[in-house]
Design a protein around this nucleic acid. Structure first.
Lengths: 118, 118
DNA sequence: GCTGTTCATTACGCTTCCGTTTCATTCAAG
DNA sequence: CTTGAATGAAACGGAAGCGTAATGAACAGC
């Protein structure tokens, strides 16, 4: 079942979620951090710095810094690949899963609201 | 007609659009900038610095700086309120409308894709 | 007219992020 | 072994964001 969105509803959805993210106290994730976090949680592993850099179209230090920042908040974890110790495997955490649960609920709630007549 | 989204579809929608925003060459807007831009375009005018600060729950300098940044890209424009010249009225621009058109299309396209079976 | 209030902006010190460049470690090929 | 390639991280200077506090301009009340 495909979802159909008018332009206005699409933008209202985005605005509602953006507003909710700004309003709550959690530090806002940048667009890049959000893309990394969601890719790690939604795409099948393994996830490496190089692979994420290629997927996002950015340089590797961007990924390293984003992992540092999100690692401080425990949204993601790093682990050396035992088979090739040059690689770093990016892994999910409980805190990251809970964060995305809250994000998903914000999106779903906004989608429900936009469905109603304004 | 309310939209119903599973948690997974909601997050995939957000990931697809975040990835598209990161990948394209336009400078990424922060969550705050995005919330301001969408509020100005979706909510009825007039829009003032103070009003936007209250709506987002941030301080006024945050709004001023965001307006400077988005003004450089011509996504928004400032104009003195002729009736009360202390006020600054934030106004839409052609470039901003085009930017949001593209954003809306990214959201709609992602929503269509998530509707399909993975 | 003054005085005090209300706007928005600027100034300040601090933190974070950026891209480029270098570095350290690990693997692979000979 | 030794050499070369590949991976991720660190170093660097510069740009942009933050919150608090001060500044400038415009209004309102007396």
């Amino acid at each position: 079942m495909a979802m159909h969105l008018t332009e206005e509803k699409a933008l209202r959805l985005w605005r509602d979620v953006s507003l909710a993210m700004v309003r709550d106290d959690d530090p806002d994730l940048s667009a890049r951090q959000m893309a990394i976090l969601l890719s790690v949680y939604l795409d099948p592993p393994p996830h490496t710095v190089r692979g994420l850099a290629a997927k996002l179209g950015v340089t590797k230090p961007v990924i390293t810094r984003a992992l540092n920042a999100m690692g401080r908040h425990k949204l993601l974890a790093r682990r050396r690949d035992p088979d090739d110790r040059r690689n770093v495997l990016i892994q999910r955490t409980l805190e990251g899963a809970l964060y995305l649960d809250r994000l998903a609920n914000m999106i779903r709630q906004a989608a429900e609201n936009e469905g109603k007549a304004p």
